[in-house]
Amino acid sequence: MEVLEAKNIHLGYPRKSGQKKVISGLSFELKKNQLTCLLGRNGIGKSTLIKGLLGQLSPVSGEILLGNRNLNELSKEEIAKEISVVLTEYSMPGNLTVEQLVALGRTPHLRWHGRLSQEDYQAVDKALTLTKIQELRKERISELSDGQRQKAMIARALAQESPILILDEPTAHLDLLGRHEIMALLYELAMKEGRAVLVVTHNIELAIESAQEFWLLISQDQMIQGPPEDLIIAGQIKKLIPGESFHFDLEKGKIVFPSEKLEINVQGPESLKFWVEKALTKANLKKVADTIFVEKDPFKISHQGKTFRSIRALIDDIKD
């Protein structure tokens, strides 16, 4: 079921000489129970699109429907009850505790005096539980790691209890494990909680792992939509990477460096062969005359009658 729908929207910023167009004529639907990833190159208009969806930038033409009401006609508070957001920018007072930060998410539900009710405290607890940061509850923001702070920001958005969750590069400053944790969490939220989750990301491999729907913003007037698997098979995903320099490897599901045809003959188990070839390519050894044999348990490489215990030893030998 779609909860947020854009119909032929044009977005832009006013300039002295008319309009600076950023998005023109795009239509799409954000669905419940689904993790959608928005991918596109820097400066293509992703952030502008997000501003539009948040009601912070009105479309020049076209309309954005929330439920079945026009976003323009809703008050900020009404929108806030439907859409919560995690942005890339943050200016945060360090003396706020995690609990207080998450409680800020209750703002649209509070009365003017801003006092939290029992119900509000429950929502905060639930958000802390879902993001698995209950034990950080009393910690101050300034003392958290980047990953913990990002989880706290996601918890704040969750406490807002909106059916739609929009995140702009939520994994940007995180380590490998942190990125996987966050994406797994977002996937879980979409599935278990039935929310519509939209994630802007540059991490294509991670996005393929977790998203059910891809929005590929190719240019200001072209957005390719569909499940990532369909887009990969149809070769559509290659449109993200124009030019010849890099290409998307269909089998590995990732972007790879361009490489010339290898004139190396490596024999042995597939898993080992892959890494040896990779190392030789990076060492710029694209042509090796004799066959290289690799063996597993114990790891051993044989070349021209010599035996090596590591790839480095092999490379050093060939270079000599």
Binding site: L54, Q56, S75, K76, E77, E78, I79, A80, K81, I83, S84, V85, L87, E89, Y90, S91, M92, P93, L96, L104, G105, T107, P108, Q160
Partner: peptide, 11 residues
Amino acid sequence: LLGERYAQSMG
């Protein structure tokens, strides 16, 4: 406290 854009997103 979280800046103008967050404030807007919270109504």
